[in-house]
Nucleic acid binder design. Structure first.
Length: 592
RNA sequence: GGCGACGUAGCUCAGUGGUAGAGCAGGGGACUCAUAAGCCCUUGGUCGAUGGUUCGAAUCCAUUCGUCGCCA
């Protein structure tokens, strides 16, 4: 029976390029998962987008002398391109500065406000008279009250590392013009999280058996150590207007609205397809399973704040008051992918940037290594020597070579046609049976989001086929027992055809290529497109997935003897060992 | 300082009470269809340390050392 699956993917913050940590943390696992479910014939909706608001974008824009919108659109464009090239198959990848998202975020805000979940409180904050605005912590510098360092930032001192309250800085000054700010009172709305504590704990109880232990433990601990109200408005210019009279100078806090993108993007996708209510098949369907792929730094924002928002809103754009918004079924958070043991750092350029990586390597080689090194249980390490080793000694040697040796042999000796299996033998049945069991085993791992285990099983099966080819008669008997050779080659082709499907969520590009070598006319997957979506006041760029022509099915091979093959070429490239030193030398240098 | 994670073969990692595992690398062998790839065999570990619980501990508890993260 077909299932309904929503794949919500964490929204990347559009103030810098994507790096390999992003890919390993959320985007690649989400894509593998979504592709698998599509092959299973399940109804999948995978959405995300660029998070375009918030202070870091304003600061970066100020530094570059451009507007926040120009800045985030620059990175949004690069995100779209990078993810297209990487094959991250969003049904819709949009951003948070669309009219659609603004409207939905404001409606959410009002719903929570009317529901009594927002309360007002007066705070003290630094205000710049010369700039006529409140200064976010990151816009203030001053002397650290703890160590006396004179260049401390408003939120943290770089010398002693202590976190600071900007109000405690000695001799505070505006980072923009150096003027001395004054303390001024300001009103803000706060989200009443303590009201949700009991319901959140019940929600966790319901899911504790299938969530990852780190996610459930962290979340429970966070709730039990006491939830506090969190400000949902800010005194900034860049962001979504607070939809209340007298609050025109304030914006909705970015953490509060960005997560609503999971719904706003679903709504936008429906709208773009002229099926305005289609999104409800996921968000108002108790049978639908919503999976939220995130990095560990995002855990509380999703497992607590976002869930509380959904609970508080109850329903939106829905008349039937017996229905409430669906809550995520799982939040498979990954840990971090570090580089040689040290955490990613933009300022030190300690990063593997995806646009750079894609210039030099094929997406499947990257996807393969990143999946094998995926930080599912704990932090993992990106290492160039491992990248080269995994590529050369496993991807190329075990799988690429297997496909190539069988296909080229078949193509050469049977005039480009699939040989007839003739009379099959026990060894053939044993192999095919083993391969066919893989669909359940690999599929089971994928459903539990154990992606590394799934990929390992695929490779174990590929080794089985290689071993089979050592025992079965083929190249040695091609001259005097063509029939036996045909049986072996047909069986091996069948095995490869099946493995191609199992590997395709991980390696979509090379699987598609192999699919065509095996003679298929129609592709496994649909197509990805960059589109421009028009709204009344502005357009935006988006990445979409069109499944119309996809024919891939999560099922054993059904190869037809006599059908035509295409002339095969190696699926993957080997890397020279020099790559390791070259790439290591690039690390930490200023970026070109 | 508080909280938490991690420390298992040369490398990357599985393994949460019942005789230490995988892949790759290293060594040996037979083969040649294939990107010198593949196959068979094989060498590697007192599971960070110490103490405890248990018939039995990599696995539970305590202490400790080391690495890292989050928070103050």
């Amino acid at each position: 029976m077909s299932e309904t699956i929503h794949v919500s993917v964490a929204w990347p913050y559009a103030n810098g390029d994507m790096h390999v940590g992003h890919l390993a943390g959320a985007y690649l696992p989400a894509d593998i998962f979504a592709r698998y479910h599509r092959l299973k014939g399940n109804r999948v909706l995978m959405v995300s987008g660029s998070d375009s608001h918030g202070t870091p974008i304003t600061i970066e824009a100020d530094a570059q002398g451009i507007s926040p919108r120009e800045l985030f659109e620059h990175y949004h464009h690069r995100f779209v391109k990078t993810q297209l090239e990487m094959g991250i198959s969003y049904d819709l990848y949009t951003h948070t500065d669309t009219e659609n998202h603004h409207r939905i975020a404001q409606d959410f805000f009002l719903k929570l406000y009317e529901g009594g979940y927002l309360y007002q409180e007066t705070q003290q904050q630094l205000y710049s008279e010369s700039e006529d605005r409140f200064l976010a912590d990151r816009f203030v510098e001053g002397t650290c009250p703890i160590c006396g360092y004179e260049e401390a930032r408003g939120d943290q001192c770089d010398q002693c590392g202590n976190l600071l309250d900007a109000l405690d800085l000695i001799n505070p000054r505006s980072k923009t013009d150096g003027s001395q700010p004054i303390i001024r009172e300001t009103d803000h709305y706060f989200f009443d999280l303590p009201k949700f504590a009991d319901r959140l704990l019940k929600y966790l109880d319901k899911h504790q058996n299938h969530w990852r232990p780190n996610v459930i433990n962290f979340t429970r601990n966070f709730i039990e150590s006491g939830l506090k109200g969190r400000a949902v408005t800010r005194d900034v210019q860049w962001g979504i207007d607070v939809p209340l009279e007298g609050w025109e100078d304030k914006r909705i806090y970015v953490w509060f609205e960005a997560v609503m993108g999971y719904i706003s993007a679903s709504v936008e996708w429906s709208h773009n397809r002229n099926q305005p209510d289609a999104w409800k098949d996921w968000w108002y369907n108790p049978e639908a399973k919503i999976y939220n792929f995130i990095g560990k730094d995002n855990i509380p924002f999703h497992t607590i704040f976002w869930i509380a928002e959904l609970m508080g809103v109850e329903r939106i754009y829905e008349e039937d008051d017996s229905k409430t918004l669906s809550l995520p079924y799982d939040m498979p958070a990954n840990e971090f992918m570090n580089i040689k043991g040290a955490q990613f750092s933009k300022s030190r350029n300690w990063a593997i940037w995806l646009p750079d990586l894609l210039e030099r390597y094929d997406p499947d080689a990257i996807r393969f290594y990143v999946t094998f090194a995926m930080p599912e249980n704990r932090d993992s390490d990106f290492s160039w020597s491992e990248f080269v080793r995994r590529n050369n000694d496993e991807l190329v040697a075990t799988w690429g070579n297997l496909a190539n040796r069988v296909l080229s042999f078949a193509y050469k000796h049977w005039e480009g046609k699939i040989p007839d299996p003739g009379e099959t033998r026990a060894i053939d049945h044993e192999l095919i049976e083993e391969i066919n069991k893989g669909f359940d085993i690999v599929g089971g791992y994928l459903e539990e989001v154990k992606l590394r285990a799934a990929l390992q099983e695929c490779f174990r099966l590929a080794r089985e086929v290689n071993a089979y080819l050592d025992h079965a008669p083929w190249f040695g008997v091609i001259k005097n027992d063509r029939e036996s050779a045909g049986t072996t080659v047909f069986t091996a082709l069948q095995a490869i055809d099946s493995l191609k499907i199992m590997l395709s969520p991980f390696l979509p590009f090379s699987s598609e290529l192999l699919h065509s070598y095996l003679g298929y006319e129609e592709p496994l997957f649909g197509t990805q497109d960059i589109v421009t979506i028009e709204e009344d006041s502005r357009d935006h760029e988006a990445l979409t997935y069109n499944p119309a022509k996809s024919t891939g099915r999560w099922a054993p091979s059904d190869l037809k003897p006599g059908a035509s093959l295409r002339k095969p070429k190696p699926l993957f490239k080997k890397f020279d060992d020099d790559v390791i030193e070259e790439e290591n030398n690039r690390l930490g240098l200023p970026r070109q």
